[in-house]
Design a protein around this nucleic acid. Structure first.
Length: 566
RNA sequence: UGCCGGGUCGUCUAACGGUAGGACAGCGGCCUUUGGAGCCGUAUGCGGAGGUUCGAAUCCUCCCCCGGCAGCCA
């Protein structure tokens, strides 16, 4: 590896890990560049918690002119699949990071790890054990009592070497033997109570095929993999803190490069679950439509929901990195995507739950073309033409037969502005036999056309959105809400976490209307539907009738007023 | 009750012995042809008790509370 000079960038450290690294750089602790790595196990899809780690590790490489490797910790073939490898690579790239071809696998190091295991055996520091799993548990002791030594602990190196080689050769059935480090069965750190290094698994591996029937345990593989890759700072979550002394012990026995492990607190998000086991269960049980269901906290789910990589990276920046347990309010995530989309998303009008409006004094058959602003936050986004006519659709919510105070929308006798068009006054409405309002009648004031200059003569408190009936496009809109009803589904006592699932987390509106310009939308396109929220075109949206996913609502002051009044 | 780690506004996060600050959430207001956006203002916090010091969130002692660890998972 070539010599490089690490330099502390102008930007100051923003968390305790940056501080450690800057100290190391200033003290010239390493002659090489700063090397980090993101080490997922390919046994599921990445989630927002991984995004925190990805941003941290790749962010450090960017900040300090270092490298961040992508390494798959694929030491357990019974749980790992190529599908997951592919999804992980896609998600890391989508977030905007690149591992520069340094795509590594723990399985690349199987031979080296095996050789090191033989070395440990020769040193008399590892032995082949034949305890059953049940016996193993008994012998391990408890958190407060020491364990006891395995009867197989004092075999000779020659015998251990022979047995271990025969394990590798496939002479023994699954689970019949293990290779264990010989350390200290009385250690207060249970990780030192002769940890298992290898187990027998006659299981095909997604990369090595049937080349191996013994597989290294994570603890035996992880630290040495970091060492092989010359990782300077091995950043992981808090639960591995107790393992660090063990990794150090292995590294010392083998006299190899010693990466510095630094632990941080994993991300928890309110109103969701984050463990891969639980996410897999939601997928397998059909509670969601898949790993990329827009309600999932997975990166692919957020992507399908309409989140941008920038918003997620900004989120990772805002939540910070520390060692105390934390639960981030999902409102912060939502704020990040609103902030991003407010600046970038084109505005369009969509009526989710249509109610017909007839403007009785507007000439039948007449069509006017109006100019609408694409994004008031971005003058370069320009304008578009929209058509106005006698019959239109408005939102059912924007008319009330008996309006409460502070309701600025339509009711009989009241006036509102139709966005980009005229001020209209409600003159009446029709109901069907079930009492449902079917049509609202209005009269418009021709003097109030938007942008006409005369518009300013009259002021109304409310402006509502609409879609002209003559050229409205049909659309399906999917309204997503939080997947769980409680802040910490996994933490509620005496209640199965699945019982806290929000049954209204998805509401499908199959009969919405949108501006005809939206007919040409492509999957992933993002819009603000005025007054409603941000939406994106679903990845499986058909071309004749688009499907839009609601990413997040707009901040809704009216909803707040309503809530307060109730 | 063994070992390791952690406690700063409601939620996150700063402070590195020298005025406890920022963000989100909340509340109040301004503005507005999106009840959006934006702008202004505002309340709320160092787990507790001692000690060291001119001065402590920061250093020391004791206590309290919370998290992790007993897979042939990672």
């Amino acid at each position: 590896m070539e010599e490089t000079t690490n330099a502390v960038n102008e930007s100051k450290a923003t968390n305790f890990i940056h501080e450690i690294i800057e100290d190391d750089i200033n003290n010239k602790k390493y002659s090489t560049r700063i090397n980090t790595r993101f080490p997922p196990e390919p046994n599921g899809y990445l989630h927002i918690g991984h995004a925190k780690s990805i941003c941290l590790n790749f962010g450090i490489a960017e900040k300090y002119d270092g490298w961040c490797n992508l390494r798959f910790d694929d030491t357990n073939p019974s749980k790992e699949e190529v599908e997951y490898v592919e999804s992980i690579k896609e998600d890391v790239h989508w977030l905007g990071f690149d591992w520069g071809g340094r795509e590594y696998y723990a399985s690349d190091y199987f031979q080296q790890l095996y050789d090191w295991a033989e070395e440990l055996i020769k040193q008399g520091k590892a032995y082949v054990c034949e305890l059953t799993p049940e016996q193993m548990r008994e012998y391990r002791g408890t958190l407060t009592e020491p364990g006891k030594e395995s009867p197989y602990r004092n075999r000779t190196s020659e015998e251990n070497l022979d047995l271990f080689r025969r394990m590798k050769a496939g002479e023994f059935p699954d689970g019949s033997k293990t290779l264990r480090a010989k350390i200290d069965m009385a250690s207060p750190n249970v990780n030192f109570r002769d940890p298992i290094l290898y187990r027998i698994m006659h299981q095909e591996h997604h990369r090595t095929g049937d080349a191996w029937c013994i597989y290294p345990m994570y603890d035996w593989a992880h630290g040495q993999s970091d060492s092989i890759e010359n990782i300077t700072h091995s950043i992981c979550t808090l639960e591995f803190e107790n393992h660090r002394p063990l990794y150090d012990w292995f590294i010392n026995q083998l006299s190899i490069h010693h990466p510095q492990q630094i632990e941080f607190a994993r991300l928890n998000l309110s109103y969701t679950v984050m463990s891969k086991r639980k996410l897999l269960q939601l997928v397998n049980d059909g509670d969601v439509a898949g790993w990329d269901d827009p309600r999932m906290p997975t990166i692919s789910g957020l992507r399908r929901r309409g989140y941008t990589p920038e918003s997620i990276r900004n989120f990772a920046e805002k939540i910070g990195v520390a060692r105390r347990d934390n639960v981030i309010d999902v409102a912060l995530l939502e704020n990040c995507i609103r902030e991003d989309l407010n600046k970038r998303a084109l505005r369009r009008m969509a009526v989710l739950q249509p109610l017909k409006v007839v403007i009785d004094n507007y000439p039948e058959g007449q069509i006017e073309t109006l100019e609408a602003i694409n994004n008031p936050e971005d003058s370069t986004a320009g304008t578009r033409q929209i058509e106005f006519s006698r019959e239109l659709f408005i939102e059912q919510d924007d008319f009330m037969e008996i309006p409460p105070a502070q309701y600025y929308r339509l009711s009989v006798g009241k006036e509102v502005r139709l966005r980009y068009a005229y001020i209209v006054k409600c003159t009446g409405f029709e109901k069907d036999e079930n009492g449902n309002i079917t049509v609202v009648h209005c009269e418009y004031d021709p003097e109030t056309k938007s942008g006409s200059g005369t518009a300013s003569k009259k002021k109304v408190k409310g402006t509502i959105h609409w879609v002209a009936a003559h050229n409205a496009a049909h659309a399906e809109v999917r309204l997503y809400d939080r997947l769980f009803n409680v802040e910490d589904p996994a933490g509620v006592k005496d209640v199965d976490w699945k019982a806290t699932i929000n049954n209204n987390s998805l509401v499908v509106l199959p009969n919405s209307y949108v501006e005809p310009s939206l007919l040409t939308t492509q999957p992933g396109d993002k819009f603000q539907f005025e007054r409603l929220g941000y939406f994106c075109t679903d990845k499986e949206s058909p071309t004749d009738k688009p499907v839009f996913n609601r990413t997040v609502t707009l901040r809704d002051t009216w909803a707040k007023i309503e809530k307060k009044n109730n």
